[in-house]
Structure formats: structure tokens, C-alpha cells
Computed example of a mutant assay.
Amino acid sequence: MYNRKLVFASACAGLFLFGVGAITLGSIAPDLRSKFNLDELQIGGLFSLFPVGILCGSLGFGPITDRFGYKLLLAICSILLALGFAGIGLANSIWLIQICILLIGIGGGAINGATSALVADISTENKGASLALFSVFFGLGALTMPFVLGLLRDLVAFESIVTAIGGLTFLLSLAYFGLQFPAAKHNEGISMAQLGQMLKDPLLLMIGFFLFWQSACEALINNWTTTFLLDTLQVNGRWTLFALSTYVAGMSVMRLLTGSVFSKIPASRMLGFGMGFLIVGAIVLGWMPGLNWVIFGLVLIGFGLALGFPVMFGMSSSLYSKNSGTAIGIILVISLVGNLLTNFAMGYLAKSWGIGIFSVGLLIAAVVQALFCFLVFRNSKMVN
């Protein structure tokens, strides 16, 4: 027996803190670059550690939750997340920062996947809309971090803010230990034959590669926007953080509307509109001058990227309702490869060609993602 509202609220809290973690590195990148005297390639290497950690967390959470349930995994991974936040705030050496980024990635990756699978499991109708509403909390978490850093930039050191977030995350782990969650689905676990069948499913793989390019776009926006604005447009450091917040605000508004006002409209149709917003936003951000155009472009990009993960998580959990955690884990792993490769590539290209290459890379990733969106929904109609 479990209380659905409490479980949903706890999942939202976990996703909120994962959102904080996902945007933290990009938000404090200029501070880390100054504090440790890092160049673009070294910053790119730091960014790439985060998806490596998420990749590790995403590889394991699916089979674990399908076999053992959600409680223990969520509680332990919240502790890892707390240690990572606190460590970044207290560290005075770059190798400690690297370890903490990995901890945030591992804990956050598992929490992201497990809470998404949990909400999909407890949602009985219109999983896409339910997951979109749930995903608002990722946006709220991601919005909070750059906003707070920008607001308190001249009053409190970024290290103190990140350490305080670690304390809040530890409190969440205690809540997870005290809650009841849905029972495990398979006491015997998933077989290798079942896993092999899922890995050969063309539709599931297409969903994964759609999210590959979704993650590529998110990696560019989350981790490189502040550097692009500082070095190319000479935007004030505080305003770069506020501008990044408008991207997250656009994402959150689109998810909120999809999960409430537009809940009767198929989420897949809303996602199609989002691809148009994404491409236009990439063009505006990269080639229209002035801070107002930057903000407009970031809002459009937020609209465009809002529904990728919620819609594809809902589709995957419907395809494999008995192994939803494993199915979501597979597509998450594919998506994180996109994040990892993008950060490495962007660090190398920015060092060799300059940060201006950011705008070209973002537009290419947006167009390819839109193409995979078309392929996914065309093949899903064939399957149905």
C-alpha cells in the first residue's frame, strides 16, 4: 500500500533537485574557469564527466527498480547527490570537483530515470501529459539555480549556495527512507532474452536516437550558453545567468501547459510543434544580435525541448509496461551518449575554432532531432 499523492510529490522533489544538478555546472562554469584557471578544453572535459556519471546511474536503475522496487535506490542516490553538491562547495582542488561531478551524475541519473519510471507506473491515463506535468519540476529546479546565483552573485559565494543545496538533498534521502512505494514488478528480475529483445526493437532504438539529439541540444544550451554570451556577445555575467533562466522558464511553461490546459491534445502533436520552435529558436539565438533576441531565442528553445523526454518516456513505458524501468534506462543511456559526445566535441571545436561554432552546432542538432521525431511517430503508427 502506498499514498499516490505522497509518492508523486517525492518524485517531483527528486526531479527538482536533479534539475538543480543538471544546470549547476553550466551556471558556475565561469566561476570554475576563473577559480581553477581552466581553458575551454578543460571545461569541456568537466562537462563530460556529468553525463558519464548519469550514464552509470542510468545503466543500473532500470533492472534494480524492476527487481527490487524504488525505495532503497532513491534514498541512496539522494545521498550521493548530496555529497556531490556539498563537495563542489567545499573543494579546493580540481580532482575533488571531478569526483563530485561524477557523484551528482550517478545519483542524479538514477533519480531522473527512476522517478520518471515511477510516475509512468502510477499514471493510469495519458502518460505523456502526466509526465509533462511531472517534468515541470526539472524545469523549476534548473530555473532556480541560475536565478539564485545571479541574484546573490555579489552577496554570497557560489560555494556556499551549492553546499546548502547538498543539505536539502540529504533531507530528501530521509524522506525516501520513510515512504512506501509501489511493489517490485519482477521478483526474478529481467532475463537476458527479454533484454536482448528490447535492444533489438527498432522503435525503441529510434526513440533513443531522438533523445540522443535532444541531449545534444540540452548539453549545448545548459553548458555552453553562458560562455557563448560572455565571449561572443560580451553580455554581463549576471545577465547571462538570467538569460539561461528564460530557457528553463520556457521549458517549464510548455510542460505545465501540456500537462494541464492542453492535456486533451496528444502530447505527440505538441512535440511536433516543439520541433518547429526549437529550430527557429536556434536560428534566433545564433544569428540575431542583442540581448532581447537572445532571450527570445532561448524561450523558443525551451518550448522546443520541453516535451522530448516526457513524451518518449511515456511511449517507452507503454511499449514495455512490465519492464518500464529497463525500457526507460535503455533510451536514457543512448541519450546520454549524445550529451557526452557533444560536450567533448564542443570543447575541442571551441578551442580550435572559437566559441562562435556553438550556434552552428546547435542548429545542426535541432534539425537532426526534428528528423528523428518524424521517424519515431511514422514508425509508431506502423506498429499500432
Rank of each mutant, 00 (worst) to 15 (best):
L83P: 08
G45K: 08
I79Q: 06
L49T: 07
L49F: 10
N37E: 12
G113C: 03
G84I: 04
L59M: 14
P51D: 04
I101E: 06
I111D: 09
S116T: 14
Q42C: 05
S58G: 10
A120Q: 12
G113F: 03
L46Y: 09
I101V: 14
C100G: 07
L90E: 13
Q98T: 03
Y70G: 04
N112H: 13
L118C: 10
F36K: 05
W95G: 02
S34N: 13
I54D: 04
C56V: 15
A82H: 06
K71T: 10
I99C: 11
L81H: 00
I94N: 10
R33L: 02
C56E: 05
G107I: 11
W95S: 13
F61E: 03
I101F: 07
K35R: 14
S34P: 01
K71A: 09
I101Y: 05
G113Q: 00
Q98I: 01
S116V: 05
L81P: 00
G60F: 13
T65A: 08
Y70K: 07
S78W: 00
D39T: 11
L81M: 06
L49R: 11
N112W: 11
L118D: 10
I106Y: 11
D39C: 10
F47Y: 12
L73Y: 12
L38K: 02
I64N: 04
G53A: 01
G45E: 06
I64Q: 07
F50Y: 14
L55F: 14
L49S: 10
N112E: 15
L81Y: 01
L103D: 04
F36P: 03
G89L: 03
G53E: 00
T115A: 12
C56I: 15
A110M: 00
F61Q: 07
W95K: 04
S34E: 13
N92Y: 12
L90K: 13
L72G: 05
I64Y: 13
R67D: 01
N92L: 05
G105W: 01
I104D: 09
G62K: 02
W95N: 12
R67W: 07
V119P: 01
L38D: 03
G105T: 03
I101R: 03
I106D: 10
G107L: 09
L81N: 00
L41E: 13
G60W: 02
L83I: 15
L49Y: 11
A120F: 10
A120V: 08
F85N: 12
L96E: 14
A110D: 00
I54V: 15
I99D: 04
L38C: 03
I88R: 03
A86Q: 09
I76V: 15
L59F: 15
I99H: 04
L41Q: 13
G57I: 01
A82V: 05
I111R: 10
V119A: 01
L96T: 14
T65V: 15
R67L: 08
N92A: 11
I79E: 05
G108R: 03
L74A: 07
L103I: 05
G108V: 02
F85Y: 15
L73S: 08
L81V: 00
G57Y: 00
L46R: 07
G105N: 01
T115R: 08
G53K: 01
A75K: 09
I88F: 05
Y70P: 06
L103A: 06
G62F: 02
L118K: 09
I64H: 05
A91Q: 07
A114H: 02
L103V: 03
G84W: 06
D66R: 01
L73P: 09
L102N: 02
D121E: 15
